[in-house]
Computed example of a mutant assay.
Amino acid sequence: METRQLGSTGHEVAPIGLGCMGMSWGYAESQRDDTSSVEVIRRALDAGPVLLDTADAYGDGHNETLVGRALAGRRDDAVVATKTGIVVQDLATRTLGRNGSPEHIRHSADSSLRRLGVDVIDLYYLHRVDPLVPLDESWGALADLVREGKVRHLGLSEVTREQAATAHRAHPVAAVQSELSLWTRDPLDPRTGISGWCADNGAAFVPFAPLGRGFLTGRYRSADAFEAGDFRATNPRFGGEALAANLRIVAVVEEVAARHGATAAQVALAWTLTRGDHVVPIPGTKQLRYLAANTAAADIRLSARDLADLDAAPAAVGSRY
Protein backbone atom coordinates (compact mmCIF):
# COMPACT_ATOMS: atom_id res chain seq x y z
CA MET A 1 0.00 0.00 0.00
CA GLU A 2 1.20 3.48 -0.85
CA THR A 3 1.88 5.62 2.19
CA ARG A 4 2.86 9.20 2.90
CA GLN A 5 5.14 10.63 5.53
CA LEU A 6 3.11 12.63 8.04
CA GLY A 7 5.42 15.61 8.34
CA SER A 8 8.08 15.32 11.01
CA THR A 9 6.10 12.81 13.08
CA GLY A 10 7.93 9.78 11.69
CA HIS A 11 4.55 8.16 10.98
CA GLU A 12 3.84 6.65 7.58
CA VAL A 13 0.10 6.86 6.90
CA ALA A 14 -2.37 5.97 4.17
CA PRO A 15 -2.48 8.84 1.66
CA ILE A 16 -6.11 9.56 2.51
CA GLY A 17 -7.17 9.84 6.13
CA LEU A 18 -10.61 10.01 7.74
CA GLY A 19 -12.25 13.11 9.15
CA CYS A 20 -14.71 12.07 11.85
CA MET A 21 -16.48 15.35 12.69
CA GLY A 22 -19.59 14.74 10.59
CA MET A 23 -20.30 11.53 12.48
CA SER A 24 -21.24 13.64 15.49
CA TRP A 25 -22.46 17.04 14.33
CA GLY A 26 -22.57 19.67 11.62
CA TYR A 27 -23.96 17.64 8.74
CA ALA A 28 -27.32 15.79 8.54
CA GLU A 29 -27.45 15.13 12.26
CA SER A 30 -30.75 13.24 11.96
CA GLN A 31 -28.74 10.51 10.20
CA ARG A 32 -26.26 10.12 13.05
CA ASP A 33 -25.72 6.44 13.81
CA ASP A 34 -22.95 5.73 16.29
CA THR A 35 -22.86 1.99 15.63
CA SER A 36 -22.50 2.51 11.91
CA SER A 37 -19.88 5.21 12.42
CA VAL A 38 -17.77 2.94 14.61
CA GLU A 39 -17.88 0.36 11.82
CA VAL A 40 -16.78 2.99 9.27
CA ILE A 41 -13.82 3.95 11.43
CA ARG A 42 -12.83 0.32 11.98
CA ARG A 43 -13.06 -0.39 8.26
CA ALA A 44 -10.79 2.59 7.63
CA LEU A 45 -8.29 1.09 10.06
CA ASP A 46 -8.12 -2.01 7.87
CA ALA A 47 -6.09 0.11 5.42
CA GLY A 48 -3.99 1.43 8.29
CA PRO A 49 -2.02 3.04 9.54
CA VAL A 50 -4.59 5.74 8.85
CA LEU A 51 -4.82 9.31 10.11
CA LEU A 52 -8.01 9.71 12.17
CA ASP A 53 -9.06 13.30 12.80
CA THR A 54 -11.31 14.42 15.63
CA ALA A 55 -11.54 17.26 18.18
CA ASP A 56 -12.94 17.84 21.63
CA ALA A 57 -15.34 20.43 20.19
CA TYR A 58 -17.04 18.01 17.79
CA GLY A 59 -20.28 17.24 19.57
CA ASP A 60 -18.75 18.59 22.80
CA GLY A 61 -16.71 15.42 23.37
CA HIS A 62 -19.04 12.98 21.61
CA ASN A 63 -16.80 12.51 18.59
CA GLU A 64 -13.72 11.68 20.65
CA THR A 65 -15.74 9.13 22.61
CA LEU A 66 -16.94 7.63 19.33
CA VAL A 67 -13.40 7.39 17.97
CA GLY A 68 -12.30 5.87 21.26
CA ARG A 69 -14.89 3.10 20.89
CA ALA A 70 -13.62 2.30 17.42
CA LEU A 71 -9.99 2.30 18.53
CA ALA A 72 -10.50 -0.37 21.18
CA GLY A 73 -8.07 -3.15 20.31
CA ARG A 74 -6.94 -1.33 17.15
CA ARG A 75 -4.66 1.39 18.53
CA ASP A 76 -1.65 0.44 16.40
CA ASP A 77 -3.67 0.82 13.19
CA ALA A 78 -4.28 4.54 13.69
CA VAL A 79 -2.45 7.82 13.97
CA VAL A 80 -4.79 9.72 16.27
CA ALA A 81 -5.16 13.47 15.83
CA THR A 82 -7.37 15.65 18.00
CA LYS A 83 -7.57 19.33 18.86
CA THR A 84 -7.98 21.86 21.64
CA GLY A 85 -8.73 25.57 21.74
CA ILE A 86 -12.35 25.75 20.58
CA VAL A 87 -14.98 25.49 23.30
CA VAL A 88 -18.66 24.66 22.87
CA GLN A 89 -20.73 27.33 24.56
CA ASP A 90 -24.11 25.96 23.43
CA LEU A 91 -24.31 22.47 21.91
CA ALA A 92 -27.85 22.88 20.57
CA THR A 93 -26.99 25.97 18.53
CA ARG A 94 -23.34 25.00 17.97
CA THR A 95 -22.23 28.30 19.46
CA LEU A 96 -18.46 28.23 19.79
CA GLY A 97 -15.78 30.25 21.54
CA ARG A 98 -12.02 30.06 21.88
CA ASN A 99 -9.82 29.29 24.84
CA GLY A 100 -6.09 28.95 24.31
CA SER A 101 -5.09 29.40 27.92
CA PRO A 102 -2.50 26.96 29.31
CA GLU A 103 -4.95 25.88 32.00
CA HIS A 104 -7.62 25.02 29.48
CA ILE A 105 -5.16 23.20 27.21
CA ARG A 106 -3.92 21.00 30.04
CA HIS A 107 -7.45 20.15 31.14
CA SER A 108 -8.55 19.48 27.57
CA ALA A 109 -5.66 17.11 26.91
CA ASP A 110 -6.48 15.00 29.95
CA SER A 111 -10.15 14.89 28.97
CA SER A 112 -9.31 13.91 25.39
CA LEU A 113 -7.00 11.12 26.52
CA ARG A 114 -9.78 9.74 28.69
CA ARG A 115 -12.46 9.90 25.99
CA LEU A 116 -10.19 8.43 23.32
CA GLY A 117 -9.03 5.66 25.65
CA VAL A 118 -5.37 6.13 24.69
CA ASP A 119 -2.19 6.75 26.66
CA VAL A 120 -0.82 9.34 24.26
CA ILE A 121 -2.21 11.56 21.49
CA ASP A 122 -0.18 11.19 18.30
CA LEU A 123 -0.91 14.65 16.90
CA TYR A 124 -2.43 17.43 18.99
CA TYR A 125 -3.57 20.60 17.22
CA LEU A 126 -4.29 24.05 18.50
CA HIS A 127 -7.71 24.19 16.84
CA ARG A 128 -7.73 27.97 16.54
CA VAL A 129 -5.44 30.68 17.85
CA ASP A 130 -7.14 32.52 20.71
CA PRO A 131 -6.84 36.27 20.03
CA LEU A 132 -6.90 36.92 23.80
CA VAL A 133 -3.96 34.61 24.57
CA PRO A 134 -0.47 35.07 23.09
CA LEU A 135 0.34 32.20 20.74
CA ASP A 136 3.59 31.63 22.62
CA GLU A 137 1.63 30.84 25.78
CA SER A 138 -0.72 28.38 24.08
CA TRP A 139 2.12 26.74 22.18
CA GLY A 140 4.26 26.55 25.29
CA ALA A 141 1.51 24.66 27.11
CA LEU A 142 1.23 22.24 24.20
CA ALA A 143 5.01 21.72 24.19
CA ASP A 144 4.82 20.90 27.91
CA LEU A 145 2.40 18.08 27.07
CA VAL A 146 4.98 16.62 24.70
CA ARG A 147 7.63 16.74 27.42
CA GLU A 148 5.21 15.04 29.81
CA GLY A 149 4.57 12.20 27.34
CA LYS A 150 0.88 12.90 26.88
CA VAL A 151 1.32 14.07 23.28
CA ARG A 152 3.80 13.00 20.60
CA HIS A 153 3.60 15.82 18.05
CA LEU A 154 1.97 19.23 17.68
CA GLY A 155 -0.03 20.87 14.94
CA LEU A 156 -1.91 24.05 14.12
CA SER A 157 -5.25 24.60 12.43
CA GLU A 158 -6.25 27.54 10.21
CA VAL A 159 -3.18 29.68 10.82
CA THR A 160 -1.13 32.12 8.78
CA ARG A 161 2.44 31.56 7.68
CA GLU A 162 3.57 34.05 10.32
CA GLN A 163 1.76 32.22 13.11
CA ALA A 164 3.16 28.89 11.98
CA ALA A 165 6.68 30.32 11.90
CA THR A 166 6.29 31.81 15.37
CA ALA A 167 5.22 28.47 16.81
CA HIS A 168 7.85 26.51 14.87
CA ARG A 169 10.66 28.57 16.38
CA ALA A 170 9.58 27.44 19.85
CA HIS A 171 8.68 23.81 19.13
CA PRO A 172 8.43 21.90 15.83
CA VAL A 173 5.14 22.17 13.96
CA ALA A 174 4.53 18.66 12.64
CA ALA A 175 1.34 19.44 10.70
CA VAL A 176 -0.96 22.26 9.73
CA GLN A 177 -4.63 21.71 8.98
CA SER A 178 -6.73 23.98 6.83
CA GLU A 179 -9.48 23.79 4.25
CA LEU A 180 -8.31 22.89 0.75
CA SER A 181 -10.29 21.71 -2.24
CA LEU A 182 -11.04 22.73 -5.80
CA TRP A 183 -13.30 25.44 -4.41
CA THR A 184 -10.94 26.58 -1.62
CA ARG A 185 -7.44 26.98 -3.03
CA ASP A 186 -6.09 29.77 -0.80
CA PRO A 187 -3.54 27.49 0.95
CA LEU A 188 -1.81 27.01 -2.41
CA ASP A 189 -1.05 30.70 -2.95
CA PRO A 190 2.74 30.79 -3.55
CA ARG A 191 3.11 33.97 -1.51
CA THR A 192 0.72 33.57 1.41
CA GLY A 193 -0.45 29.95 1.28
CA ILE A 194 0.26 27.71 4.25
CA SER A 195 0.80 24.56 2.16
CA GLY A 196 4.06 25.93 0.78
CA TRP A 197 5.24 26.83 4.27
CA CYS A 198 4.59 23.24 5.34
CA ALA A 199 6.57 21.84 2.42
CA ASP A 200 9.49 24.16 3.19
CA ASN A 201 9.54 23.33 6.90
CA GLY A 202 9.03 19.57 6.95
CA ALA A 203 5.42 19.72 8.14
CA ALA A 204 2.45 17.83 6.77
CA PHE A 205 -0.42 19.78 5.27
CA VAL A 206 -3.75 18.19 6.18
CA PRO A 207 -6.70 19.46 4.12
CA PHE A 208 -10.11 19.23 5.72
CA ALA A 209 -13.27 19.42 3.58
CA PRO A 210 -11.36 18.28 0.46
CA LEU A 211 -14.73 17.51 -1.14
CA GLY A 212 -16.05 21.02 -0.55
CA ARG A 213 -18.27 19.82 2.31
CA GLY A 214 -19.75 17.32 -0.12
CA PHE A 215 -20.48 19.84 -2.88
CA LEU A 216 -17.79 18.56 -5.23
CA THR A 217 -19.40 15.11 -5.24
CA GLY A 218 -22.20 16.53 -7.40
CA ARG A 219 -24.89 15.30 -5.01
CA TYR A 220 -26.05 18.73 -3.88
CA ARG A 221 -27.64 20.88 -6.57
CA SER A 222 -30.19 22.77 -4.50
CA ALA A 223 -30.17 24.53 -1.14
CA ASP A 224 -33.26 22.46 -0.34
CA ALA A 225 -31.06 19.35 -0.16
CA PHE A 226 -30.16 20.03 3.48
CA GLU A 227 -32.19 19.44 6.59
CA ALA A 228 -32.74 22.19 9.14
CA GLY A 229 -29.72 22.51 11.35
CA ASP A 230 -27.26 21.24 8.75
CA PHE A 231 -24.36 23.69 8.65
CA ARG A 232 -24.51 23.80 4.86
CA ALA A 233 -28.11 25.03 4.78
CA THR A 234 -26.90 28.51 5.74
CA ASN A 235 -23.43 28.37 4.16
CA PRO A 236 -23.03 31.18 1.60
CA ARG A 237 -21.63 28.86 -1.08
CA PHE A 238 -24.62 26.52 -1.00
CA GLY A 239 -27.36 29.07 -1.55
CA GLY A 240 -29.06 30.82 -4.44
CA GLU A 241 -26.95 32.36 -7.14
CA ALA A 242 -23.72 31.20 -5.47
CA LEU A 243 -24.75 27.57 -5.67
CA ALA A 244 -25.70 27.90 -9.33
CA ALA A 245 -22.34 29.50 -10.10
CA ASN A 246 -20.41 26.91 -8.12
CA LEU A 247 -21.95 24.08 -10.10
CA ARG A 248 -19.58 25.16 -12.89
CA ILE A 249 -16.75 23.75 -10.76
CA VAL A 250 -18.62 20.47 -10.35
CA ALA A 251 -19.12 20.26 -14.12
CA VAL A 252 -15.35 20.35 -14.67
CA VAL A 253 -14.75 17.68 -12.04
CA GLU A 254 -17.45 15.45 -13.51
CA GLU A 255 -15.97 15.81 -17.00
CA VAL A 256 -12.56 14.63 -15.78
CA ALA A 257 -14.19 11.84 -13.75
CA ALA A 258 -15.92 10.53 -16.87
CA ARG A 259 -12.54 10.07 -18.56
CA HIS A 260 -11.42 7.80 -15.71
CA GLY A 261 -14.66 5.95 -15.06
CA ALA A 262 -14.46 7.43 -11.58
CA THR A 263 -16.73 9.51 -9.36
CA ALA A 264 -16.44 13.27 -9.04
CA ALA A 265 -15.47 12.78 -5.39
CA GLN A 266 -12.57 10.53 -6.35
CA VAL A 267 -11.23 13.04 -8.85
CA ALA A 268 -11.54 15.89 -6.34
CA LEU A 269 -9.54 13.85 -3.82
CA ALA A 270 -6.98 12.78 -6.42
CA TRP A 271 -6.44 16.45 -7.23
CA THR A 272 -5.58 17.27 -3.61
CA LEU A 273 -3.01 14.48 -3.59
CA THR A 274 -1.22 16.08 -6.55
CA ARG A 275 -0.61 19.22 -4.50
CA GLY A 276 2.48 17.66 -2.94
CA ASP A 277 3.75 14.56 -1.18
CA HIS A 278 3.35 16.38 2.14
CA VAL A 279 -0.44 16.56 1.67
CA VAL A 280 -2.72 14.09 3.52
CA PRO A 281 -6.42 14.95 3.03
CA ILE A 282 -9.05 13.87 5.54
CA PRO A 283 -12.46 13.54 3.83
CA GLY A 284 -15.28 12.68 6.17
CA THR A 285 -18.10 10.19 5.69
CA LYS A 286 -20.62 8.19 7.69
CA GLN A 287 -21.09 5.52 5.03
CA LEU A 288 -18.97 2.50 4.15
CA ARG A 289 -19.53 2.84 0.41
CA TYR A 290 -18.15 6.36 0.37
CA LEU A 291 -15.23 5.33 2.56
CA ALA A 292 -14.27 2.65 0.03
CA ALA A 293 -14.60 5.09 -2.87
CA ASN A 294 -12.54 7.74 -1.10
CA THR A 295 -9.77 5.27 -0.32
CA ALA A 296 -9.68 4.14 -3.96
CA ALA A 297 -9.11 7.74 -5.07
CA ALA A 298 -5.44 7.32 -4.18
CA ASP A 299 -5.10 4.98 -7.16
CA ILE A 300 -6.28 7.53 -9.73
CA ARG A 301 -3.50 9.05 -11.82
CA LEU A 302 -4.53 12.38 -13.30
CA SER A 303 -2.98 13.32 -16.63
CA ALA A 304 -1.48 16.67 -17.53
CA ARG A 305 -4.67 17.47 -19.41
CA ASP A 306 -6.80 16.51 -16.41
CA LEU A 307 -4.78 18.73 -14.10
CA ALA A 308 -4.87 21.65 -16.53
CA ASP A 309 -8.65 21.40 -16.77
CA LEU A 310 -9.11 21.12 -13.00
CA ASP A 311 -6.71 23.95 -12.24
CA ALA A 312 -8.61 26.14 -14.69
CA ALA A 313 -11.95 25.55 -12.96
CA PRO A 314 -13.52 28.82 -11.82
CA ALA A 315 -13.07 30.10 -8.30
CA ALA A 316 -15.89 29.52 -5.86
CA VAL A 317 -18.55 32.17 -5.33
CA GLY A 318 -19.35 32.98 -1.70
CA SER A 319 -17.35 32.99 1.50
CA ARG A 320 -16.34 29.80 3.31
CA TYR A 321 -18.44 30.59 6.40
Rank of each mutant, 00 (worst) to 15 (best):
D76A: 14
D309L: 15
L302G: 07
P207C: 12
T3P: 00
R305D: 15
G7V: 08
T272A: 11
P314H: 12
E64T: 04
T35I: 12
G276P: 08
T192H: 08
W271E: 05
D76E: 15
T274S: 08
G214M: 09
A264P: 03
L216K: 01
A57R: 11
R69D: 13
C20K: 03
G19Y: 01
P134F: 09
L126Q: 05
L135G: 08
T217C: 06
R42P: 02
R259D: 03
V173P: 07
V50E: 04
A175K: 07
S111P: 00
D311E: 13
R43T: 05
V279N: 01
M21L: 12
E148I: 02
G48F: 10
G240V: 13
G68R: 06
S222G: 03
S30A: 13
A47F: 00
S138L: 00
Y220S: 03
R289E: 14
P102D: 01
I194T: 10
L66Q: 04
V40Q: 06
A293Q: 15
R169Q: 15
V13L: 00
G229P: 08
G212F: 02
Y290Q: 15
V250H: 01
F226W: 12
A165D: 13
I86Y: 01
D33W: 07
W183N: 13
A304W: 01
L273D: 04
P49N: 12
A55C: 02
Q287H: 15
L52W: 05
V38N: 03
R98Q: 08
P190F: 05
T285D: 00
A109S: 03
L6K: 11
Q266R: 14
E29G: 02
D46Y: 06
L71S: 11
R94V: 07
S319L: 14
G22Q: 09
G7Q: 08
G48V: 06
A204Q: 05
A170L: 15
V252N: 02
R114P: 00
E148M: 07
G214D: 06
D311A: 08
V159Y: 00
D77S: 14
P134R: 13
G22N: 13
I249K: 04
R161V: 15
R275Y: 00
N201D: 06
E137D: 12
S108Q: 08
D224I: 02
D77K: 13
R115W: 01
P190R: 10
W183D: 11
W25N: 13
G61A: 11
V50F: 02
R147G: 14
H62M: 06
L66I: 08
W25P: 00
D299T: 13
R161P: 00
R74N: 11
A297L: 05
I105Y: 00
G196Q: 12
S37N: 15
R43I: 01
D277C: 02
G68T: 09
A170I: 10
L216I: 08
C20T: 15
A245Y: 03
L142F: 04
E12T: 05
V146P: 11
E255V: 03
G73T: 03
R106S: 08
K83S: 06
G68M: 04
L182N: 10
V88Q: 11
G202F: 08
E2K: 11
A170H: 11
A78M: 12
H168F: 10
L116C: 05
M23A: 06
V173G: 07
H153F: 10
V50K: 04
D230H: 10
S24E: 02
S195G: 03
